[in-house]
Write a protein that binds this DNA or RNA. Structure first.
Length: 785
DNA sequence: CAGTCTACTATTTTT
DNA sequence: TAGTAGACTG
């Protein structure tokens, strides 16, 4: 066993304290670059080696698979890998899936339930809204879907929401939520938010299950705690047995350790609440808080800039990062005339850094606020031949052809999965059109049977065309054929069978659309992904390796299954995950991997010779670090984003995003903006980002501080040369309370003005009949009265 | 039923 | 500008 005593010396005092603290809940506030992952992994090693904790008693939760993998790998570097295998180091979602696969039966779900991603759940909501005959203009399915997601994040079920529904909108939403949830249940499916919510429900409703996990996991560690939403917060509370429904007196609660940094919370728009970290000491009165402020990543100049920016946010716990890495060079600033010019500057600098032998391209990252901004960089990078890699954007598993085949696989794994079934019904084209689909749906509703069952009884469906019926027969026969071979085939074999027997591949092969060529390639890659999965498979994500030495458990493990557990939980079937029996990967395992584990092609390896420049959004950059960072598009309206300018909280989140961006840089930081930027075809003139003003002047050396085309802060567009659709017209300067007339809505009152320059928006109230509407002032046919 | 056309909309997104 | 979703027509 490696001596941990020695390695504790690599830690600073607060880090060491965080590693060794015991006996009460622990909050570690870890500033950017303060060695958070190191502390977490050392803490785990310390638990195992010094405190006699068994690996099976540790549950470490992260948000991303990448973080989980990294933590696991780094723990393995400290202790034996066999021990590391018995720990649960998982994302919130995969941990919940493990629990739900075992216990979901109590909630009426099959253990092979399907996981719907955001696209699937939107599709289902669309079907639900159509079924309810809702006007998509007044009740947009997309918005309903988002709202249901928010409700689930708040653990508000449809009944509770329905009771308090007042307006028509809310009532319809409650109805849609109810129906949506019923459809999910019928399809044996859960959406992402269900994974968390239903696990909380399960633990709250079945105290024996909750107790089982509390007895089992004596240590619960949570990473990125500032990103937890309410449901995840409640889940953690359930796991440690505080605030739960069961009697906590029976045995001591598990020890909780959370790590986070409120200043790096950038996912509030997804329901994350900063509250969870700010109020940790109130939630857990015994808690100890440790602050990590020494940064091991960046130069002091970079940290000073970051500190200055984040300080503008009110109501935060004061925290000042410092570094002993030296002052470092100043930040380089650049004002470009347009976005191409900006990209050219970035490329030029990267070339220069490379030529001077200071940095290789792989040490450089370019950040931007929105994915759309990547295009220009891509253009310029290609033109100059500088190798690059864009992280994010259209993801592999979101491509149409992959989703089509996935839908087949899901139907094979779970025939009741209606969303997937309806997706492939007429893919490839086989003559089952909207008409036929509708009559099957109607028939299913009337007979109170599932869509899948209705399909198999299609001959009884009223008003179905003979031609359609024949096509449906062929389709169900095809499915049966595939279902037959599925149980004895590996995932990759199943995929190949689907590709060939459905005619999907030949349809693409016969197409003359060039896009379809790359589709075929993607599908080939998909088969490879499946093969790779089979080769590296080490046991299912769920179930699998439980206790490694069941007998040694402190106190008898009372399994949640009552009688079954009495025969010795852990010693039985569950234990075979490791060792002797190499488990065969099932289709369900494969599908789960795909839904829960995002992209294979992510951040390029830094140490590859020369390597490539990494381009990504600021959000994707969280958790990463690069020797050289370019923060681009520093313009009000771009970053901070136009849509955040009105809301105080959202602007604060943008500022945190800026903080995250700045603190990614280790040695060199560049900040740039462009005077003109084309958005959706039309150029717009943006003023400098307010975040630029928040960086102390003496930290920045401006390579170019003014644009040639817009010497001072331009007010409005010098309307482009070519006549736009709208004849040139006075753009009114509006203020709240102004009366205006609109060409089609008539007279109204300005309620809200928001945004900058060309992108100024106004909310105008046209009275009871029409209500409030938002306009882009530049384009709206409004006149000030 | 299937291909084509038009109208619409447009952050960030760990799972 | 560009991608998509629904309507329209052959």
């Amino acid at each position: 066993m490696p001596s941990l005593e020695l390695s504790l010396n690599d830690l600073n005092a607060p880090q060491r304290e965080a590693v060794t603290h015991s006996g009460s809940p622990l909050l570690i506030i870890a500033g950017a670059g303060s060695g958070k992952t190191r502390v977490l992994t050392y803490r785990i090693a310390h638990l195992l080696e010094q405190r006699g904790v068994r690996p099976g008693e540790i549950l470490a939760i992260t948000f991303t698979n990448k973080a989980a993998a990294e933590m696991k790998q780094r723990v393995e570097g400290l202790i034996s890998s066999r021990a590391a295998n018995a720990m649960w180091v998982l994302t919130f979602h995969s941990a919940c899936v493990r629990i739900l696969r075992r216990e979901g039966g109590r909630l009426g779900y099959p253990s092979s339930f399907t996981i719907y991603d955001a696209a699937d759940s939107k599709r289902l909501m669309q079907l639900v809204c159509k079924e309810m005959d809702l006007d998509p203009k007044r009740f947009p399915p997309k918005s309903f879907s988002a709202q249901v997601s928010n409700l689930k994040n708040e653990l508000i079920d449809y009944d509770t929401f329905g009771e308090s529904a007042q307006t028509e909108q809310e009532k319809k939403l409650a109805e849609a939520y109810t129906l949506y949830q019923r459809r999910l249940h019928e399809a044996g499916a859960m959406d992402f938010d269900d994974l968390i919510m239903l696990t909380v429900n399960l633990l709250e409703m079945f105290p024996d299950v909750a107790e089982y996990y509390r007895r089992r996991f004596r240590h619960v560690l949570v990473d990125e705690y500032q990103d937890t939403n309410h449901a995840q917060y409640r889940l953690v509370r359930q796991l440690v047995g505080i605030g739960g429904d069961t009697d906590p007196a029976a045995f001591p609660p598990p020890e909780l350790c959370v790590v986070g940094d409120a200043d790096q919370s950038i996912y509030a728009f997804r329901g994350a609440t900063i509250r969870n970290i700010l109020e940790f000491e109130r939630d857990y009165p015994e808690a100890r808080t440790i602050l990590l402020e020494q940064n091991y990543r960046s130069t002091q100049n970079i940290l000073n800039a970051a500190n200055a920016v984040i300080q503008r946010n009110p109501d935060r716990r004061e925290k000042k990062l410092w570094s002993d890495q030296g002052i470092g060079p100043k930040i380089t600033g650049y004002v470009a005339d347009n976005e191409h010019d900006e990209a050219a500057f970035v490329v030029g600098e990267i070339d220069k850094l490379h030529d001077e032998g200071e940095f290789t391209p792989s040490q450089v990252a370019v950040f931007y606020r929105t994915n759309a901004q990547s295009r220009v960089f891509e253009d310029v990078f290609i033109r100059t031949g500088l190798p690059y890699k864009i992280v994010g954007g259209v993801r592999f598993y979101e491509r149409k052809e992959i989703r089509d085949i996935l839908a087949y696989l899901r139907v094979l794994a779970n025939p009741e999965d209606t969303v997937s079934l309806r997706r492939i019904l007429n893919v490839p084209k086989r003559g089952i059109g909207d008409r036929a689909e509708e009559s099957i749906e109607l028939f299913a509703a009337r007979e109170r049977i599932s869509f899948a069952q209705a399909l198999r009884r299609a001959q009884d469906a009223p008003g179905i065309a003979t031609r359609s019926l024949k096509a449906i027969r062929e389709f169900t026969a095809l499915l049966e054929e595939l279902e037959e071979l599925a149980p004895s085939s590996s995932p990759s074999e199943i995929i190949e069978a689907v590709l060939h027997r459905t005619g999907y591949l030949s349809e693409l092969a016969n197409s003359k659309d060039i896009q379809d060529e790359s589709r075929v390639e993607n599908l080939e890659e998909f088969v490879d992904v499946a093969r790779e999965f089979e080769n590296t498979f080490s046991g299912p994500l769920y179930g699998g390796e439980e206790e490694e030495e069941p007998g040694a458990a402190a106190g008898e493990e009372t399994g949640p299954e009552g009688a079954a557990a009495a025969t010795g939980e852990g010693a039985g079937e569950e234990a075979e995950g490791e060792g002797e029996t190499t488990p065969e990967p099932t289709l369900v395992d494969f599908l789960e991997q795909i839904s829960l584990v995002a992209d294979t092609d992510q951040i390029p390896d830094a140490d590859e010779s020369g390597g490539v420049v990494t381009l990504m959004t600021l959000h994707s950059a969280k958790g990463l670090e690069f020797p050289v960072v370019f923060l681009t598009g520093m313009e009000d309206g771009v970053f901070p984003h136009m849509r955040t300018l009105g809301e105080k909280e959202e602007l604060e989140e943008e500022r945190r995003l800026a903080y995250v961006g700045i603190t990614r840089a280790q040695q060199r930081l560049y900040i740039s903006r462009s005077a003109v930027r084309s958005a959706w075809g039309t150029p717009s003139y943006n003023p400098a980002s307010r975040f630029l003003d928040e960086v102390p002047k003496d930290l920045v050396e401006w390579r170019r501080s003014e644009s040639a085309i817009a010497p001072s802060r331009p007010k409005f567009a010098t309307q482009s040369r070519k006549p736009s659709a709208r004849p040139s017209r006075e753009v009114p300067t509006l203020e709240v309370g102004d009366k205006v007339t609109h060409d089609s809505f008539g007279m109204g009152t300005v309620q809200l003005v928001d945004g900058v320059g060309d992108r100024t928006k106004a909310r105008i109230d046209f009275g009871a009949d029409i209500g409030e509407k938002d306009f882009l002032v530049k384009f709206a046919p409004i006149e000030k009265l």
